[in-house]
């Protein structure tokens, strides 16, 4: 349906066409200028990744050193583990935030009681308000080995021995995924709520007349209608698959060395490695590496989406 050109289009002259679209381009102008100033011009910084920056000469005049700044990303024998952690966590986050986000969104939209609806809507976004530092404290409040609520109250009540949470990496995938979902699910959920609210109610009325049950309605109406939002959010997630929430992986496990096997991700590795050195070339190389991988993945995914359904592709 989207390929059908506007009927009006063909009827108007060239001048008319420009006249028709010009106001629309003008509407985009403020945003475009901002994006160029804020995002595109500073992109000259990407070249820093390939330079030995000497500020006394200036960034532009510094020597090119090829890919040397990138070497440190692969210098550690943990490079594999770190990459694996980053990808697996992000994959889990994308899937969980998607599934749980949609489920909660549908639930919330279905709640009849207006007060409760408001309550749920607020509640789900509240964790979003807390900074990761504070979340880190709260997680510590539960899992502190000496004073934590779990070790001090819950496990003894169950007759279990205390667990050394911060010394044992095996628990952390679960904890981190839980914390991320707890904190982040509201974001997607709110988008889905907006999308569901935007669905034309006549669809449902028609379905109800046809005698379609709840599940069928979700499958045939709700999901297809919010599919564009799902695709947008997922593709954005895929694009950032090599990035990770630094706070989640650094503040929440409290930088405990014994947990690195399951908590070390690219961002924390870069931070720890460069904390003392402050090498601008290397940190920018890390960013470029993360971006390029994400970019390629998004291009591929977008291509796949285009093949399946053209109008749902991101670009």
């Amino acid at each position: 349906m989207s390929t059908k050109p506007g009927v009006i289009d063909r009827r108007i002259s060239r001048f008319g066409r420009i006249k028709k679209w010009l106001p629309l381009y003008l509407m985009m102008l403020p945003g475009a200028i901002y994006i160029i100033v804020n995002n595109y011009i500073p992109m000259f910084g990407i070249m820093i990744a390939f330079k030995q920056v000497d500020f006394s000469k200036g960034i532009f005049a510094s020597d090119w050193i090829g890919l040397k700044n990138f070497e440190f990303l692969f210098a550690s024998e943990d490079a594999m583990i770190i990459t694996r952690n980053t990808i697996l966590y992000n994959a889990a986050f994308i899937v969980l935030n998607l599934v749980i986000g949609i489920i909660f969104a549908i639930f919330i939209c279905d709640v009849i009681n207006k007060r409760l609806k408001k309550l749920y809507q607020s509640a789900i976004l509240f964790p979003f308000l807390m900074s990761m530092v504070i979340v880190g404290y709260i997680v510590f409040a539960f899992f502190s080995m000496q004073n934590g609520i779990v070790n001090k109250s819950i496990l003894p009540a169950l007759g279990q021995e205390p667990i050394f949470w911060y010394n044992d990496p095996q628990y952390w995938p679960v904890i981190l995924i839980f914390v991320n979902t707890w904190k982040g699910v509201g974001y997607g959920c709110l988008i889905y709520i907006a999308a569901i609210n935007g669905i034309d109610p006549t669809y449902y009325e028609a379905a109800e007349l046809d005698g379609a049950g709840k599940l069928k309605q979700i499958w045939h109406i709700t999901l297809p209608c919010i599919l564009p939002s799902i695709i947008t959010l997922t593709l954005l997630g895929v694009g950032r698959i090599f990035y990770s929430d630094f706070g989640l992986f650094y503040q929440v496990p409290r930088d405990s060395g014994m947990l690195y096997a399951t908590t070390n991700v690219i961002d924390t590795y870069v931070y720890r490695g460069l904390m003392r050195q402050g090498n601008i070339g290397m940190s920018s190389a890390a960013g470029v590496y993360q971006s390029v991988v994400g970019f390629l993945l998004v291009l591929v995914s977008n291509l796949v989406v285009r093949k399946i359904s053209k109008e749902n592709a991101l670009f």
């Binding site: 040397k68 070497e71 440190f72 210098a75 550690s76 943990d78 930088d255 405990s256 060395g257 690195y260 070390n264 590795y269 870069v270 720890r272 490695g273 460069l274 904390m275 003392r276 050195q277 090498n279 290397m282």
Partner: peptide
Amino acid sequence: ATELTALNSVRTEFMA
């Protein structure tokens, strides 16, 4: 510089 980043990371892993 490359070696030092990896070393720093190893040090934080074990030292504490």
